[in-house]
Computed example of a mutant assay.
Amino acid sequence: MKTVTLAGQTVPAIGIGTWHMGDDPQTRASEIATIQAGLASGARVIDTAEMYGSGRAESLVGEALQGVDRQQVFLISKVLPENASRDRMQRSVEASLQRLGTDYLDLYLYHWRGNVPLAETVSELQRLQDQGLVKAWGVSNFDVADLDELWALPQGPNAQANEDLYHLGSRGLDYAVLPWQRQHQLPLIAYSPVAQGDAWGQHLTTNPVVRQLAEKYQVSIYQILLAWVIRHDQVLAIPQTSSVAHMRQNLAAGDLTLSAADLTALDGQYPAPTHKLPLDVI
Rank of each mutant, 00 (worst) to 15 (best):
V11S: 02
P12D: 05
P12E: 07
A13I: 01
G15A: 06
I16C: 01
I16H: 06
I16N: 07
G17N: 09
T18C: 11
T18M: 05
W19T: 09
W19H: 11
H20N: 13
M21G: 01
G22F: 03
G22E: 07
D23V: 05
D23N: 15
D24S: 12
D24G: 09
P25S: 05
T27Q: 14
T27W: 02
A29V: 10
E31H: 12
I32Q: 09
I32A: 11
A33Q: 14
A33I: 03
I35Q: 04
Q36K: 15
A37M: 06
L39F: 09
L39E: 08
A40R: 14
S41V: 02
G42R: 07
A43F: 04
A43L: 06
R44D: 00
V45W: 05
V45R: 10
V45G: 01
V45P: 00
V45F: 02
D47P: 01
T48Q: 10
A49R: 11
A49H: 08
A49V: 03
A49P: 01
A49C: 04
E50F: 08
M51F: 15
Y52S: 08
G53R: 12
G53M: 06
G53S: 12
G53P: 04
S54V: 10
S54I: 05
R56E: 13
A57D: 07
A57T: 09
E58L: 11
S59R: 15
L60S: 08
L60T: 00
V61L: 05
G62N: 08
E63A: 15
A64T: 03
A64L: 03
A64Y: 03
L65C: 02
Q66W: 00
Q66I: 07
Q66M: 10
V68N: 04
D69V: 01
R70H: 07
R70W: 05
R70F: 04
Q71P: 00
Q71D: 14
Q71I: 00
Q72E: 08
Q72G: 11
L75K: 08
I76G: 02
I76E: 12
V79N: 01
L80V: 01
E82H: 13
E82T: 07
N83Y: 13
N83T: 01
A84W: 04
A84Q: 04
S85F: 07
S85M: 04
R86Q: 14
D87L: 05
D87C: 01
M89T: 03
Q90W: 02
Q90E: 15
R91H: 13
R91T: 13
S92Q: 06
